[in-house]
Design a protein around this nucleic acid. Structure first.
Lengths: 228, 228
DNA sequence: AAAAGACCGATTATCGATAATATGTACCGG
DNA sequence: CCGGTACATATTATCGATAATCGGTCTTTT
């Protein structure tokens, strides 16, 4: 938002978020207030405020008098998040389609990146470009609330990438659906793009749902409503 | 979570949220840290922490060195929120249906409350029961992430109550769709229930879409909309 | 008179210190 | 040897005071 972050608490929040997303601070890692304060050459107060904000973003978790630590995301939560993300992106596609028909150049750029990453077996590049691809669609929907809701799930999904390992071949297989999505949006077919996105996201839940004793039950996707 | 809120910042957050939801603190109202601190007989620090948490809940908005105030929700945001809520509830219905088939007693209780509120023209009752109805479905989906995403929209929708107007007759007309939704869930038809929910929520966006130009006049505030 | 700048009061952001609480460890009676 | 209690230690929660910044007002300059 601001180029010049004047508030120390904002700087700290930014830095910590970066470390968490990058994996430098792994899930479960304890965050000690005075320790971080010393590192940033500041006092405890701004650190605590940064914690409160990070907590709201669900990046960290804190209990009274017991401290703050990087949040752990269970497989179940991952599966749940992908279900939600699926319907959000479906809506995004439906809203975006009429607005972006014939104007999906940027989306195809990300598509190229995805393909490059997949074929090179570069999971990091794939993840970055994939995120760019999906975000573009959600932003194109021109619905701020939708974007915020979607972003609120970014932690789960981003963290997932660094945890779940998909084979290079699986990545290559996922190229096609992204191509189909881009094509559908290009011709203004939001229904199709939406369905593809929802299916795509739903498919990813299977990666997670069997990793725990009690997996989430996905909806029957065979007859997905295409209304509205 | 805890019955005994030991942290002052939690107490403050709780109290302020209550006031905002109830309307005692109207949108736009400025919140001065030391003022609130004095009122709760505490210092500035816990108040600031409460602000950070409320900000994350999007109940308040703050700018560095410029203070914190109760967030204003624009008609556009309201319309956007209902679109998002629609797909979330659609997903909720699809997930919940197989789990609640034949076990929707509680839902019908809320249904009775909705009908009673509508027929009596009791907007407040209608609102409360309506909220209960929808929340029951989302909880029944047994997806914590979905519930969190849904709750994140509660501010927009709850605040809307005090701004939007619906005639008593409109409320009565909305009874039927709730009945249909409950019936569909009762027989395990999540597809139908989901579609009805999405349509229902989508329909409410129209209430907001064209309101930007002509704001509500105080005189007509008696007709309070209570839906969702 | 209008624009620019300095000043003032109010409020926020941060600090250093203190109180409160949790966790781990040694000690005690059994 | 074990369960349980008191103490020591580490860390969090809060406090009171100070520094930084904003917004408006009052000059000053052209």
């Amino acid at each position: 938002m601001d180029a010049t972050r004047q508030c120390m608490s904002d700087q700290i929040r930014h830095a910590l978020a970066e470390r968490i997303y990058s994996g430098k601070l792994p899930p479960g890692e304890r965050l000690v207030e005075l320790q971080i304060a010393r590192e940033f050459d500041t006092s405890q107060t701004p650190v605590r405020e940064a914690f409160r904000e990070l907590e709201a973003l669900r990046l960290v978790e804190s209990n009274p008098y017991r401290g703050t630590r990087v949040r752990e995301v269970s497989p179940r939560e991952m599966a749940e998040a992908y279900l939600v993300r699926g319907v959000l992106e479906q809506l995004a596609a439906e809203l975006a389609a009429p607005l972006v028909r014939g104007k999906v150049e940027k989306l195809r750029d990300a598509l190229d990146g995805i393909a490059a990453g997949a074929k090179a077996g570069d999971a990091k590049l794939y993840a970055a470009e994939n995120l760019k691809f999906h975000r573009w669609i959600v932003e194109a929907a021109d619905n701020r609330i939708l974007l915020q809701s979607w972003e609120a799930l970014s932690f789960e999904t981003r963290i997932g990438l660094s945890v779940a390992r998909s084979s290079p071949q699986e990545l290559v297989e996922r190229i096609q659906i992204h191509i189909d999505i881009a094509n559908a949006l290009d011709v203004g077919d939001g229904q199709t793009a939406g369905l593809l996105l929802r299916h795509h996201s739903h498919g990813l839940t299977s990666v997670w749902k069997d990793r725990e004793a009690n997996p989430v039950e996905p909806a029957t996707m065979s007859k997905v409503s295409t209304d509205l």
